[in-house]
Design a protein around this nucleic acid. Structure first.
Lengths: 259, 259
DNA sequence: CGGTTATTTGAATGCATTCAAATATCGTGG
DNA sequence: CCACGATATTTGAATGCATTCAAATAACCG
């Protein structure tokens, strides 16, 4: 049972009771080291994975070794929600930092989702958010410059961790290496390094001892043309029936997501 | 009512009866010219869109005009399935060729999905396929060379239109301009032109009067490192309960999708 | 402390872009 | 049916962003 998952599911519209039962279907968590494999593409998908603590990513590679990160999971987020509907995993999952990962047995989660419309809706909206993030990444990979890509990713991470920032100075843990950033942004390690230096000069970015500081969020978001609305939980009128002011609350709630 | 939609839903696991009722919820179709807008990002999402005939795409752009296609819809495919769960549209939808588009009222489709588990499952699996396609595009945009990107996209289109090809020579209608291809692959028009010429020489690609011919599918798929399995309907064990040999049938059925 | 991993720098190369202009094709009205 | 304007494709040349290769420095881990 995991309190963070309960609150996540409720944020995305699950009834308190349904959220509890969803979270109760967790198997005991496993702990893995940074760089360790959590699930491989080929193996049968029997469980869904939730990162309780730590960061992980899903990736694919081409025959000659070029690698692309296709999904990033921060504390409290699912890694492979798509497995719920399709039954097959489409990427290898690897820990980017030391991780505690919860396993949710697929059959029981499906049974639960079939019975609980609100839980089903919450999982659907979580998938939809993953889709929005994926599309935003497509825009970065296809059309943004190196600096813009990195800036955009950093903004996204900041908001996914702590919600839209209150003050102009933002700070958060950052376990990724420059090589991880390269995988996620479709750039070479060397160029990530150089773009990071440019950001350091332009928007006062500091990265030391696995901690990121953004001196000017305004500047950074400007460089990235960043609009956080694609990260909000409520992206329509689903919740509005149940929670009258859900739309407004959504962003506020995101802020407490930091789990 | 649209026979193609019925068969699409059944391919993805809806009961015949449920598929019929899903298709029955279609509003009358509208016809739009190539280049015309079908739905805008900002406007309230009241309907889902299905391209009955013609090609369309969803796109986003940056302030300075750089544009990226984030989704492509071929005849018989949904354009904005993500709206079903999230309630908001995340891209502008534009016709790439003359199009007949069916509108499905969101509320009635949701009601239907809530009542019909098999229809719900089919829509979920269709969304999951959209997700797999999106991730494949991320790999192209992030890590494939210009020629590889275009080759991969052409392979994908060929399979989405007609299923995995039987013979080594493949032919299909192709209404996209090179500028459309540039939007989809994250390249400049000029470079698309040059890469197309390279493909012409290397794999005997011919594109004339809106018709594409691939002389050697083997060559083309080789250049693209193309593996069609991410396009299959059945990507897990969901269907296996109902249709014993669904997995094998999935690819075969895809072949008859060409609508 | 020493080995390993990560970051940083320099220099050379290359893939893709931009700009500009020519040619070809398409659609439409005369 | 042809002429016309508009759209799409093609080519050349110059530039630039990002990559690769190589090596040095710095940080991390046991």
């Amino acid at each position: 049972m995991d309190a963070k998952l309960v609150s996540l599911l409720q944020q995305f519209g699950a009834e308190p009771d349904a959220a509890m039962r969803g979270a109760a279907s967790l198997s005991p968590t496993v702990t893995v080291a940074a760089g360790a494999s959590i699930a491989r593409k080929e193996q049968a998908a029997t469980h869904l994975h939730l990162v309780v603590d730590g960061w992980a990513h899903g990736w694919r590679d081409l025959r000659d070794g070029r690698r692309q990160t296709v999904a990033l999971a921060l504390p409290g987020e699912f890694l492979d929600l798509e497995v719920l509907a399709s039954g097959e995993r489409e990427a290898c999952i690897t820990a980017l930092s030391p991780c505690r990962v919860a396993l949710l047995p697929l059959p029981s989660l499906r049974r639960l989702a079939d019975q609980e419309p609100s839980l089903r809706g919450a999982l659907g909206r979580l998938s939809a958010r993953d889709g929005r993030v994926a599309r935003e990444w497509m825009i970065s990979l296809g059309r943004r410059s190196a600096m813009e890509r990195i800036a955009h990713l950093l903004c996204e991470i900041a908001v996914r961790l702590d919600g839209p920032p209150q003050s102009d100075t933002v700070q958060f843990p950052f376990p990724l290496t420059q090589s991880d950033l390269a995988d996620a942004t479709g750039l070479s390690v060397v160029h990530v390094n150089r773009s990071l230096q440019a950001l350091r000069r332009q928007v006062g970015l500091v990265l030391e001892r696995r901690r990121m500081t953004i001196a000017s969020w305004t500047e950074m978001a400007g460089v990235a043309e960043f609009d956080p609305c694609y990260l909000a939980a409520d992206h329509g009128d689903h919740l509005r029936d149940r929670h009258a002011h859900a739309r407004h609350a959504a962003l506020t709630e995101l802020r407490s997501e930091r789990v």
